[in-house]
Design a protein around this nucleic acid. Structure first.
Lengths: 263, 263
DNA sequence: AAAATTAGTCCCATATAATGGGACTATGGA
DNA sequence: TCCATAGTCCCATTATATGGGACTAATTTT
C-alpha cells in the first residue's frame, strides 16, 4: 500500500516516525490526549516518549497540561509570516519566469479565494503589454472569464461549482465573455475533459490565454497556471506547443505540493 | 558545553539531526546552498541527503533550484494562521487562569510591540472590576505606566531603553503616573534589580499591580505577566506572597519557550 | 484519604536500522 | 564539450534506536 513509483526511495525511519508524530500534533493542536493521538502510529510507549521528548527539546512542540501537546513557540517564531499562498508563490515563481521567457509571453499563477481568482504570481517575458495591466499580483479578478478561473472552476467539486454558477450575474467584459450560466457550465465540462482552458478575448478584446491545473496527488487542484498573449502580439506557435510547455511546468510544480505524511 | 540540569535527557539522535537540519533550512529559506548551510552539522554526504530526502518526503521542506531548500507547502498549510503571539497566548492562558483564580485577582500577559504593551491574555478570578476594563486582549496600552510595561522596558537592551525614554512625553493618567524620564529610568533600574515591577495607581487611581518577566534561556525577556488588584478590592496578602506565586507561574511558563536547536 | 489506574521516566540487552565510505550518475556552469 | 560538484545508490559494519519491564509521578476512582 505504498506509492507506485518507488516504494521507499531512501529514508530515515526514526526521523519519519518523529515527523509523523509531529504532524499529528500540529494538526490536532492539543485537542486530543497523546495516547489517543498516537494510537495510529503503534509505537511502544518507550519509543513514543523518546520522540516526544526530542521534539520538545528542539522546540517543535510544547507540552501543555492534561497530556496534550501543541506546536512549540520556537517553531512558531521560525515560521512566522509564512502563508500557504506566499509559499506557493515563492516556490513557483522561478519556474513561471522561465516559462514566460521561453514562450515569450506572460505567465500567471492563481488560486481560488471566495469565488474569485487571486493572482499570486505574474511573470512576463519582456515588457508587459498595456492590455495585461488588468492582472496584478495579490489582487483578485472574476473567475468566469479567465483561463485560470475556468480551470479552477472546472476542478471544483460539483456542489461548489453549482453554487458558483447559480451565483451570477456574469457581467460581460467583452463581446466574447460567457455570461450565460448554462453555457459556462458546458465550457467547464470541456475544460475538465480537455485538461486545459482557453480564454479567447473574454476578459479583454486583445488577450489570448491558455491555462492548466496544478494537480495534487489526490487529483484535486490547488492552483492553476496560464500563459497569456496579446492577439496582436507574439503568439508564434499553436496551442499544442504552448500546452506542452505549460503542462511540463505544471508537472514540475506539482511535485512540490505532493508530499505529506501518509497513513 | 551542554545544559547543566541533564546532559542529554533521553533523545533520538537521528531525529535530532534531522530537525537541526530542518531548523537551518527554515531560518535560511533558500538563501544559502545546502552544502554551506549544513557545513556546521558535519554530516557525511550520504547521511545528509538521507535526512533531506526524508524531510522532503514528509512535506517539511521543498527542494528548489540551485541546491537550495525551503519550507514545504504541506507544512505551511498545517501551520497556517499560527503566530508567535497567538501561540504564546494559547500556551500561557491556562496557567494564568489558574494563577488568577488562586490569587483572587486578574492576571495579564503582555509583550512589547512598537513601544507599546500588547496584552495577549487577560484572565480574571471572578467578575472583572470596572476599573479593569482598561485592558483588553490584543489591544495596546502605554508601557511606562503599567507593571508589565515597566518590566519589559527594564529588560530592554540599554540602547532601546534610552531611545524609548527619549521618545516621551509621558502623559499623566493619574496623580501618581511617572512622567519624568529621569525618574522613570531610575524606577526601571530598580525593577531590574528587584526582578519585579509594581504599579501603584499609576494607570488608574484604584489599581495595584505586580509584574514579573518571562525569562528565556538567554536571559532575554519575551513577555511579562502580572497580577492586578483593585485597591478597594481583595489584596489579601502582602507583595511577597503574590510575587512568589507570580514567579512560580513565570518559571513554569518559561520552560515552554526555552527550547531551540543548540548548535 | 487511600487505592487503583494511567502518564511519563529510566535502564539495559538485543538486533534492527542508521551510518558513512565509496562508486556511480545527473546537473549545471564555463 | 568538459569538469566539478550535487545528488543517488549500495552495502558491510556497528553504532544506535528499539521496546520490555521496573519504577515514579500524576490523576482519577472509590
Amino acid at each position: 500500500m505504498e506509492q507506485n513509483p518507488k516504494p521507499p526511495p531512501s529514508n530515515s525511519a526514526s526521523l519519519e516516525k518523529g515527523l509523523a508524530l509531529f504532524n499529528l500534533i500540529a494538526r490536532d493542536r492539543g485537542q486530543t490526549p497523546l495516547k489517543e493521538l498516537a494510537a495510529g502510529l503503534a509505537l511502544p510507549r518507550s519509543t513514543l516518549y523518546r520522540l516526544i521528548n526530542t521534539l520538545e527539546g528542539t522546540g517543535m512542540i510544547t507540552r501543555l497540561e492534561h497530556r496534550r501537546y501543541d506546536i512549540g513557540l520556537p517553531l512558531a517564531e521560525a515560521l512566522h509570516g509564512i502563508t500557504p499562498a506566499g509559499q506557493l508563490a515563492r516556490l513557483c515563481r522561478p519556474a513561471l519566469r522561465q516559462l514566460a521567457s521561453a514562450c515569450g509571453a506572460t505567465a500567471h499563477l492563481g488560486v481560488m479565494e471566495n469565488d474569485m481568482v487571486t493572482y499570486l504570481v505574474k511573470e512576463s517575458a519582456t515588457s508587459v503589454p498595456a492590455a495585461l495591466s488588468i492582472s496584478v499580483e495579490n489582487t483578485q479578478l472574476e473567475a468566469y472569464c479567465s483561463g485560470i478561473g475556468k480551470v479552477l472552476l472546472a476542478w471544483l467539486p460539483e456542489a461548489e461549482r453549482a453554487r458558483y454558477l447559480a451565483g451570477g450575474p456574469f457581467v460581460a467584459l467583452t463581446s466574447r465573455t460567457i455570461t450565460d450560466p448554462r453555457q459556462l457550465r458546458e465550457t467547464l465540462k470541456t475544460v475538465k475533459a480537455e485538461q486545459f482552458a482557453r480564454d479567447d478575448g473574454e476578459i479583454a478584446e486583445d488577450l489570448y490565454c491558455l491555462a492548466v491545473p496544478l494537480l495534487t496527488s489526490d487529483q484535486s487542484v490547488s492552483a492553476a497556471i496560464s500563459l497569456t498573449f496579446t492577439h496582436a502580439g507574439q503568439k508564434k506557435h499553436d496551442d499544442a506547443t504552448y500546452l506542452t510547455r505549460l503542462r511540463a511546468c505544471a508537472a514540475k510544480l506539482s511535485r512540490a505540493s505532493l508530499a505529506t505524511i501518509q497513513s
